[in-house]
Design a protein around this nucleic acid. Structure first.
Length: 277
DNA sequence: AAACTTACCTGGTGGC
DNA sequence: TGCCACCAGGTAAGTT
């Protein structure tokens, strides 16, 4: 379940191995993931140089002179860089074969559940941020224009619970289930509270919590960077200390009350009834 | 029209 | 051991 921090750490992990290098060959072991791969994808990339990498929310961006490869890891996707002749394992769907310093390397996409996506946006198609999957996205939580004011202003007409509004991603991106639960705990806000009923000051606290928790996760992930490169490395979830997530019935680290699990929009929410009001 | 709700895709896992 | 309900994130489709 890669969330924003995992995607960012993945980007940082693979960037030194692929930026500035030419894609020699593209191997596709199936037709698509969530959606079919772009038609002619191999021909589109082979012989072309990767100019840069980027990220928008949980979308990993691999930039070429003529367009951008948009990669989403879905729930179970994983990227690794390994020697190109490494035998592909189950669910290894795509290789971008690149001439590295020590021979041919593959940027390999593995995704058991295939909820991930690989899309192409040509420069001719207009601005990248107007791409159908990117244009509705909220602000970057680690960017300069995210604050309590962002949340407050965007929620005045939102009656849905704050947890679900955060998750929707149209106000701020990259806050998945884990980070939504954890940041609401840190801010002391009950996840069921209608978003439009939360005061400005509490949103300041929530924005700080979101920013802080995501930034900490990226730092934590930095120490696992080499896992993204190891042949057998399955970089699991970052070993962050959770306060509420997946701790149903366990005493709250703050007050000792048992952490409660509820469903909001088919999704599990974990919170402390005592610390979050 | 915007906000909200629900269904769905897949495979690994854990309970029985 | 085998079956099966359950879970996950994000999008599409449907509803208010």
């Amino acid at each position: 379940m890669p969330e924003l921090p995992e995607v960012e750490v993945t980007r940082r992990g693979v960037a030194p191995h692929i930026e500035g290098r030419v894609v020699e060959r593209v191997l596709l072991r199936r037709d698509g993931l969530r959606w079919p791969f772009p038609p002619g994808l191999a021909a589109l990339l082979e012989g072309r140089r990767i100019t840069h990498t980027g990220r928008r929310g949980k979308y990993l961006l691999i930039g070429f002179g003529h367009g951008t490869l948009i990669v989403h890891l879905g729930m179970s996707g994983h990227l690794r860089v390994l020697p190109a002749d490494t035998e592909p394992k189950k669910h290894d769907h795509i290789d971008l074969v690149i001439q590295g310093e020590t021979g041919l390397q593959a940027l390999r996409i593995n995704d058991p559940r295939r909820f991930g996506a690989v899309l192409w946006h040509a420069n001719d198609d207009g601005e990248l941020d107007q791409h159908i999957l990117l244009r509705g996205l909220g602000v970057e939580p680690l960017g300069d224009d995210f604050s309590g004011a962002t949340l407050f202003n965007a929620t005045r007409r939102r009656s849905a619970p704050i947890k679900q509004v955060l998750l929707a991603g149209d106000i701020v991106v990259g806050v998945g289930n884990i980070y939504a639960c954890e940041s609401l705990f840190r801010a002391g806000i009950n996840p069921k509270t209608p978003a439009g009923r939360i005061a400005r000051g509490r949103y300041d606290k929530l924005a700080a919590a979101i920013r802080g928790i995501l930034a900490e996760a990226i730092v934590q992930g930095g120490s696992t960077l080499r896992d993204f490169l190891a042949v057998n490395g399955q970089s699991g979830y970052f070993q962050q200390t959770y306060f509420v997530y997946d701790r149903t019935g366990v005493p709250c680290r703050n007050c000792g009350a048992p952490i409660r699990q509820i469903k909001q929009g088919q999704r599990s929410t974990f919170y402390c009834v005592n610390c979050q009001r």
